[in-house]
Amino acid sequence: MKTIHQYTLNSDQKITTLALREGYRVVRCEYLLAQKQVYLWVEEPLSIDLPVIKRQFMVVGSGAPVPVSFRHIDTALDPFGPQAFHVYEVVQPQQSQTQTQTRRATELRQALPA
């Protein structure tokens, strides 16, 4: 089984750390005008056998510099203004390749029949 959780992200290039189950998948990112916050919806497996991993996300505005190793997740738009909020997963250069390999292995494991 799996579920979708909603998380509030810090703004102004401050890092948000989330504890997510291995095999998570970001499904949506949106700027909610009433709260003036960027939200992230993440699909996570409900299996308690899967380890919890800490992942970091950062919200940046258009034109702001971002390290090459960071991975773009999604962009949230202000529906009534010119602002765009870009959500990046904070990835260290040496972790980037290992993390991609781990995520692919988890996706393959989940795709196999039980």
Rank of each mutant, 00 (worst) to 15 (best):
P45F: 00
Q95Y: 12
D78A: 07
R109K: 13
L9Y: 13
T106N: 07
D78Y: 04
G23N: 03
D74T: 08
V52I: 08
V59M: 08
L112C: 09
K54S: 11
G81Y: 01
V52G: 13
K36I: 00
C29V: 15
T16C: 07
V27D: 15
K14I: 05
A84I: 07
F70A: 05
Q92V: 10
H72Q: 07
S62M: 11
G23Q: 01
F85H: 14
F80E: 12
R28P: 00
R104H: 01
T17S: 00
A34D: 00
R71C: 08
V38I: 05
L20P: 11
M58W: 04
I53R: 12
D78L: 02
R28V: 02
Q6M: 11
K2N: 13
Q37C: 00
I53Y: 04
P93L: 03
E89D: 09
T102Q: 13
L77E: 08
L32W: 10
V59E: 13
M1A: 09
E30M: 10
L40F: 02
L108G: 11
A76E: 02
L46A: 07
Q99K: 11
Y24P: 09
A76S: 03
Q97M: 13
Q6G: 03
E107D: 12
V59N: 04
T16R: 00
V68S: 15
A34W: 01
Q99I: 00
Y31V: 10
D78S: 06
V90R: 02
Q101F: 14
V87H: 04
P79M: 14
Q6I: 07
Y39K: 15
P82C: 02
T8M: 05
Y24M: 07
Q94K: 10
V38K: 05
F85S: 00
G63H: 01
E89Q: 12
S96E: 10
N10S: 10
T3N: 11
V38P: 03
I4C: 15
I4Y: 13
L40P: 00
L50M: 11
D78W: 11
Q101R: 14
V27G: 05
V38N: 01
F80C: 13
L18V: 02
Q110V: 06
V42M: 01
Q37K: 11
Y88D: 14
L40N: 00
P82Y: 02
K54F: 04
I48L: 01
P79V: 06
A19E: 14
P93Q: 02
L46R: 08
